[in-house]
């Protein structure tokens, strides 16, 4: 399906372009891909080709950048994307218990998505919040100083939260 920016995204894209010298438009690539992702949920080939056209670069340049970065998603996630930091400080404060709890309560492990697409799970690297470990980022929201009790409450809340159509971000 051909991709095109919505009116809102078009306005935000114009703002992004203002940040960089006109002869270095490619600098706008990562912010532009975030806009595609926000509108569509993830990056499709059509979305990437569209940005290539808008920035006067080749589609392979876009792909080269898009595939390098973990936050630029090439496939959809669940409505609540559980990003569990399992790096050293979080590990020392019990992050593996949180992974186990996700398995028990949501039936998924790292790299998986629940059948109803409500939850997906990913092990992530240090989120720069080690002093308040263990940390889980749900979509963009940080949840810090988690205990098995507080994480269990959080998962139950997300489990019962009303959701509309699956959303990407």
């Amino acid at each position: 399906m051909p991709f095109e920016f919505s009116k809102e995204m078009e306005a935000r894209f114009a703002k992004v372009l203002e940040k960089y010298p006109a002869e270095h438009k490619k600098a706008a690539l990562i912010p532009a891909l975030y806009l595609v992702q926000e509108q569509h949920g993830y990056l499709t080939i059509d979305g990437m080709k569209y940005i290539a056209g808008r920035l006067d670069i080749s589609a392979s340049e876009v792909l080269n950048t898009a595939t390098f970065y973990t936050l630029l998603r090439k496939e959809p996630h669940g409505r609540f994307h559980l990003q569990v930091c399992t790096n050293v400080s979080c590990f020392l404060r019990g992050s593996d218990d949180l992974i186990r709890m996700i398995r028990d309560k949501c039936g998924i492990g790292p790299g998986e998505m629940s059948d109803d697409r409500r939850f997906s799970c990913e092990e992530v690297q240090c989120l720069a919040a080690c002093g308040t470990a263990p940390v889980v980022q749900v979509n963009w929201d940080y949840h810090e100083k988690l205990t098995t009790e507080s994480f269990s409450t959080l998962l139950e809340e997300l489990q019962s939260r009303e959701i509309s159509a699956p959303e990407g971000a």
Binding site: K19, Y20, A27, I30, P31, L33, Y34, F68, Y69, T70, L71, L72, Q125, C126
Partner: peptide, 10 residues
């Protein structure tokens, strides 16, 4: 001053 976002790469 402009802010530019990274995208998840240490």
């Amino acid at each position: 001053i402009y802010q530019h976002p990274g995208a998840g790469a240490y």
